[in-house]
Nucleic acid binder design. Structure first.
Lengths: 139, 139
DNA sequence: CTTGACCCTAAAGTATGGTTTAGGGTTTAT
DNA sequence: ATAAACCCTAAACCATACTTTAGGGTCAAG
């Protein structure tokens, strides 16, 4: 396998070189070998690992969770069920976020529906409903 | 109207006293009058304003956006349509977030469906799909 | 008159995921 | 041999919304 510089890995994976060094500090990618002049030397494996990280991020995993996923992946005794449970838990937190956003959406839609969009803000039903003493059924 | 200390307002609104001082620094609530010993003296109005802020936050508005809403509210020339437009724009960003979360959810569900939850992680389809060279139809 | 509950300020810390800066070597092409 | 393009480190900075800490006054009850 051929040697890659930090810039090569950055280009291959689409991340900033500073980000690669940051991932290394965070323990998400192993410390690579170094040249005599102290330059990092990566293998293709490192680039693959960065892509793993990016994909997991796209699925909503935090760097800490990805770190857990990676150590699970490297563990000889870990069971597939553990990974599945992490994914299932992530779905639950996604659902919670969606529910919260939907509630906001519904509340905002109601307010907009009440607002003709005309007249001064002193008559604005949206602002009015945000004021104390007039708690509409926003929840 | 009777005078309220920062602690009174905190209790009435359910926020931390440090948060009230923070809102003041951020320009979300006006600087209140002070006693001879430099204690903040609030009116009921201030408490109402804090509740406005909390409600707007619950609808997904950031402190900066709430600041805009508050100045619009105080403006004699502002039109109700401006508030409506801000709310409409907020709905659009909420929808974008929901869409992104739904996409994650779908992708994770597919992965979980593929995983029997048994066997070592070396055979885990979830981890496999996150690896390079095996980009399933996650999007 | 002392003690505990409150108040004050400025500054630093928390969490998340990076990016930017400062200051300084190395490698590559011309 | 020199300039551009890269590499290195440590530390600071960005956004968001607060909380915590440190060090120090004030007020009400007993």
């Amino acid at each position: 396998m051929k040697a890659l510089t930090v810039g090569d890995v950055a280009r291959k994976t689409g991340v900033n070189v500073a980000t690669l060094r940051y991932y290394e500090r965070r323990g998400l990618i192993p410390r690579p070998a170094r040249t005599a002049s102290n330059y990092r030397i990566y293998t293709e494996d490192a680039a693959r690992r960065v892509l793993f990280i990016k994909r997991a991020q796209a699925l909503g995993f935090s760097l800490e969770e990805i770190k857990d996923l990676l150590s699970l992946k490297a563990s000889p005794v870990a069971r597939c069920g553990e990974v599945r449970e992490i994914a299932a838990e992530k779905i639950r937190t996604i659902d919670d976020k969606v529910d919260a956003l939907e509630a906001m959406r519904v509340a905002l839609s109601k307010l907009i529906a009440e607002c003709a969009g005309e007249g001064p803000v002193s008559d604005c039903p949206i602002l009015e409903s945000l004021e104390a003493g007039k708690p509409r059924d926003l929840h």
